[in-house]
């Protein structure tokens, strides 16, 4: 879920770029400035991330896996709670949230749009194994969609909601998605 292991240098580059995105926005940050902030040579940044797109995608994946990491849910029915917390985390770092949201919407050239998919499938299979494939897929897809920064961006932009209302509405929708399977858990 956290992607390929990063070297110490790579992590320093991504952390430096992340800081600069919050200070300056993602458009205006040069490799020279990133190198200086990370305390390494500009050449080293280029060697690790040959293009700005490479750098941006790696940074977005790193931000999602570290700064926006979710507390692991033990049950599929805990997922709405995790979504509520995650929305509040996105709200605290709006610039970074937009970067993660945008890079996940680039199709095959972007970051993985549903990094939590496998975990959701595992939880669902463990508790409610008797679902037909289409229903299983729909529940996982809907929860993965809600448990993403796209929710925070959309609810804020389209409805002007604040942190509390975004968290409420996202968790509510996730509860609704689970409505059809609440009573279908396999007894332990």
């Amino acid at each position: 879920m956290t992607g390929p292991a990063l070297s110490g240098t790579q992590e320093a580059i991504l952390a430096a770029f992340t800081e600069l995105i919050e200070e300056l926005g993602s458009d205006d940050v040069s490799y020279r400035v990133i190198a200086r902030r990370a305390g390494i040579a500009e050449r080293t940044v280029f060697r690790n991330y040959p293009t700005r797109v490479d750098l941006l995608l790696a940074t977005a994946a790193w931000i999602e896996a570290t700064l926006f990491a979710r507390e692991e849910s033990k049950s599929i029915f805990d997922v709405p709670l995790a979504i509520r917390e995650t929305m509040q985390r996105y709200d605290a770092r709006p610039e970074l949230a937009h970067v993660v949201a945008e890079t996940a919407m680039r199709g095959v050239n972007g970051t993985a749009p549903s990094p939590g998919r496998e975990q959701l499938e595992r939880l669902l299979d463990a508790e409610v194994p008797a679902l037909d494939p289409a229903q299983r897929r729909a529940i996982v897809a809907a929860l993965a969609h809600l448990d993403s920064v796209g929710t925070w961006v959309t609810y804020r932009r389209e409805f002007g909601l604040d942190r509390r209302d975004i968290a409420d509405a996202a968790a509510w929708a996730a509860e609704a998605v689970l409505d059809g399977i609440r009573g279908r858990v396999t007894p332990a």
Partner: peptide
């Protein structure tokens, strides 16, 4: 508002994009 946000988000281009890229689904699915 809860209903409106959920319907808006499930009918969005983002929903389509995530299901296409992250789940390999076609339009019917």
């Amino acid at each position: 508002r809860r209903v409106a946000t959920a319907l808006c988000y499930f009918s969005s281009a983002m929903f389509w994009a995530r299901l296409r890229t992250g789940f390999d689904l076609d339009a019917a699915e």
